[in-house]
Design a protein around this nucleic acid. Structure first.
Length: 222
DNA sequence: GACCAGGCACATC
DNA sequence: GATGTGCATGGT
């Protein structure tokens, strides 16, 4: 049995062959990447796009623009992506932190060590490990592994990790597979989301899934 | 009319 | 510490 790291690299190769580059993150500035990362928590990306369009119309896609919006109005702008009370508060938490601690500058933020920024992000209410790692990877271009439910399912069904493997375990496995390469980590996570949306919703049906050939015999016989 | 979506915080056991 | 549950909305 190959190591999980080797398997992850094989998945990456096969997914890239099947789907091609995903061009993540679909946003023009690191600030907008961060807003999207918060808004997409437990929400479909199509819903996030509608919220982003509302924020754009309200000129709230920049730090100063966002900070000019009252929290109640912000809730209405982001209504399409749900969880409006908590997400509005989180967006403002993030914006105030960026302004207060980092002069509102991603350039300043990018100079700090990845782990330092990660700790600060995790200390913000409403930002958990997945959102923090998305910001590190897609806004700051740090080599930060992102673990999501789809990766958890793939790893579990392919017997690479326990069904109950926590975020940290899968983060280490991913780091071991793509250590140091932000480019590969970027593409890998995007591809996992893509295959997850189309093939990993129900277990273990993988007909037509680019990863099906990697399934262990015990699973394919289910 | 369920079920899900590019999670998180908090209560409870 | 692990497991369950509320948060909110729109698409399928």
């Amino acid at each position: 049995m190959p190591t999980a790291a080797v398997q992850f690299r094989r998945y990456y190769r096969d997914l890239f062959s099947a789907y091609g580059p995903q061009h993540w993150w679909p946003a023009p500035t690191p600030f907008q990447v961060s807003l999207g990362a918060i808004l997409t928590q437990n929400a479909a990306w199509t819903a996030v796009e509608r919220s982003i369009a509302n924020l754009h119309a309200a000129k709230a896609l920049t730090l100063t623009g966002l900070l000019r919006v009252h929290e109640e109005d912000l809730r209405e702008l982001i209504r399409p992506s749900g969880h409006i009370q908590r997400k509005a508060a989180t967006l403002l938490n993030f914006a105030h932190w960026l302004k207060r601690e980092h002069r509102g500058s991603f350039r300043h933020l990018a100079k700090l060590p990845m782990e330092t920024v990660r700790e600060q992000l995790l200390a913000l209410h409403g930002i958990g490990p997945e959102t923090a790692d998305c910001i590190l990877l897609y806004a700051l271009h740090h080599p930060a592994p992102v673990v999501d439910e789809y990766l958890r399912r793939v790893a579990s069904r392919h017997s690479l990790a326990s069904e109950k493997a926590n975020y940290e375990v899968l983060r280490q496995l991913t780091a071991a597979a793509f250590s140091g390469s932000a480019k590969d980590l970027n593409e890998f996570h995007a591809l996992i989301v893509e295959v997850g949306k189309s093939h990993c919703r129900t277990r273990p049906q993988c007909n037509g899934c680019p990863l099906a050939k990697h399934l262990s015999a015990s699973l394919t016989n289910l």
